[in-house]
Structure formats: C-alpha cells, structure tokens
Design a protein around this nucleic acid. Structure first.
Ligand code: SF4
Ligand code: SF4
Lengths: 167, 167
DNA sequence: CATAAGATGCATTTACAATATATGTTATGG
DNA sequence: CCATAACATATATTGTAAATGCATCTTATG
C-alpha cells in the first residue's frame, strides 16, 4: 500500500532534491513521525475510548482501515512495554494496563519512535560533521526538540479522550 | 553512500517493526530532518563563516566530505529562494545575499524541508484517519510542532556563527 | 577561446518503512 | 477434549523516495 496516498493520478512524482520548475514546489518531506507511532497512538486512543470491554486487534485495524499485520506488531509492542494487557485465546483481546491518566504521550512517542536524531551529529557513533565541536546550531536543535517533547509531556492519554469519557 | 553509517559491522539490521529480542532495542527512526536540510544549514554556516570572499561549491562539499552533486542542488536552491547570490563563470562562487542576521533558521528549515506533516491527518488531501474530526491528539501535535519551530524562529544565522565573527 | 565556475535534467542506487505470509501458542466453550 | 478464536513470532517481499551519480548546458574571465 502507499505511504500517504498519491497526490493526484498524474501529479508529477518529483524527488525532494529536484524541483518542479513548472510550479516551483517539491513533494514528500520528512519531519514526520512514522506510521508505526501513528498507529500506536491510534490504538491507544481506540482502546481508551472503549474502557468497558476487551477489544481485538482486528477490530482496531478494521476501524482505522489499516493493515492488520501492522497493528498486530503495534499492539504486541505496546503490550511488551507495559501499556497494554493482552489476553490470548478465544474471547481474548486487549485493554489498557494502566489508567489513561498515567500514559504520557511523550513517553509513547519515545518508545515507538526509536530515535529522535534530528541531524547526523545527534548520534556520535555515526557522526561525520566536522563542525560538531563548536556548532551552535546543534544546541538550538536540541532546544527545539526539547520544546517539542515538552508539549507532548504535558498530555496524557486521558487528556486526549473525548470529554464524554472523563470520569 | 549510507544514510547515517552503520552502527557496527555486525550489528543486526532489524526493521523498526521487528524487535531485537536479545537487547530489546530497535534501530533506524524518523523524527529527523533530511540531509538536504542538514546540508542547507551547513552550507549557510560555512558561507557565513567566510564573509570576506566568494566560496565555491566544491570547497563546501570538500569541507564537509559530502556529495558535491547534492551540494550543487542545495546551493542552487538556496540561491533561487534568495538566501545566496551565485556568480557563474571563472572566478565565480557564492556568498550570502543578505546579512546573516536576517536569515532566520525557521525559515530556512521550512524552505528546505518541504513539509512538516507529523501525521497523516496533517495533509487533508491524503488523510484517511477516521478520528480527524474530534481528535485531540492532532491539536497537541500542532502545538508541539509550533513549539519546535518557535525555538528555531528565535535564531538567525548570525546567532549561530562563532563569536569571533560577530561585528 | 580555453577553462572554471554554476545550471539543469535525468538515471541509478540504496535504505527501510510498510506489508505480506506462514506458523506457533494459548485459552475457551460447546 | 478438541475445534476455534484469539494473540505471538519470525521471516520474506514490496514500494517509495532520499541520496547519489552522471551528462550536458550556460556563463564569464583571464
Ligand atoms: S552543522 Fe551543526 S547541527 Fe548540523 S550536523 Fe554539523 S554539528 Fe550537527
Ligand atoms: S489519530 Fe488524530 S492525530 Fe493521529 S492521524 Fe488520526 S486525527 Fe491525526
């Protein structure tokens, strides 16, 4: 399936490094979270909205119209790191392992988005940038990332559920 | 060449959706800016550090040890959007088209990172998420992105150059 | 006018997110 | 007690696009 759908049937597929000289635009960026993280959050939202019973993976995948295989791994992962309780066997399913108010969004993103290296120098093991030592940009990018995560740290799953579900 | 180098010679290359059951970690994330943006900023830093003369693209590419082809496109783009003055012909080269103090980092990132769609729903044309309407997560992500860009908006190229270059 | 620079277009490579498939394990309920 | 419905796990395949490579054109100068 396609990553984010195609713009239009005949929209020119142009690489980021090339330019659509006709329209002066380019397509397909980064600065995005993976679909994996997206699905992780969506799964938590769905499960959080259904606190009264177990839900199955198929049910979640069907609701969002996404690959069941993908969702299987998402759920399994969320279970393995303690956000979900998964119950096997007939009549099995999943539910939150903790109160929604104790599931911090920043932590979910960090657990599902395996790294947050905005630039090459963020990973000292693979960095090759000669500026690393005295680069002020690096510090600014760290600040920006901290600001980003700071907003997410201020929210829990409970804050994101519809008001009708608040206790 | 490799995107960000290899962790280790024999480090397991495991897909994000699979897990290294031995160590419980996974590799290769997102939440990163493109190398294209990286090179754009590096080029500006280099040119900003050399205000007294024209510099050539080859010189910049050599300094950072990166693909000259890539840098050619980066420079051309920065020129076409008004950050650089490029001079063709023998003894040509590039220099800043504006004072470093008027080159805002957030604007450079926005101009080089073609979109900033953190999740599928950020692009209404391709969005399929059924939650879009009443999803509170969406608003939180918008806030987080704004916080990120806000930090970058507070800095200009002049702020990132070494103190010795300050007027 | 030879040469050194940037401009431009297009082809190729590579990484990896996304997806698919196959099989194993557990529990229930009829 | 066994057929079935759920999650668990491993591996293989596909598709996209970032990154890179290459070939050619244009411009200016010494
Ligand atoms: S230029 Fe600065 S921020 Fe960019 S990779 Fe190099 S050290 Fe890091
Ligand atoms: S769950 Fe919310 S934030 Fe995620 S794609 Fe859907 S509408 Fe957007």
């Amino acid at each position: 399936m396609e990553r984010r759908g195609r713009q239009q049937k005949d929209a020119l597929k142009i690489h980021l490094l090339n330019f659509d000289r006709t329209h002066g635009i380019h397509y397909d960026p980064r600065m995005q979270l993976t679909l994996y993280t997206d699905y992780s959050l969506r799964a938590l939202l769905y499960i959080g909205r259904t606190p009264d019973r177990l839900v199955t993976i198929s049910e979640i995948a069907d609701f969002y119209g996404v690959s069941r295989n993908h969702m299987v791994k998402v759920i399994h992962h969320l279970g393995s790191i303690g956000y979900l309780t998964t119950i096997r066997g007939k009549a099995g399913g999943v539910r939150l392992a903790r109160p929604a108010g104790e599931i911090r969004i920043s932590e979910v993103v960090q657990a599902t988005e395996p790294h947050m290296d905005l630039q090459e120098c963020f990973n000292p093991h693979t960095n090759t940038c000669p500026l690393t030592g005295d680069c002020r940009l690096k510090g600014v990018l760290y600040q920006a990332r901290a600001a980003f995560m700071g907003v997410l740290a201020g929210q829990t799953l409970a804050d994101l559920l519809p008001p009708s579900l608040e206790p």
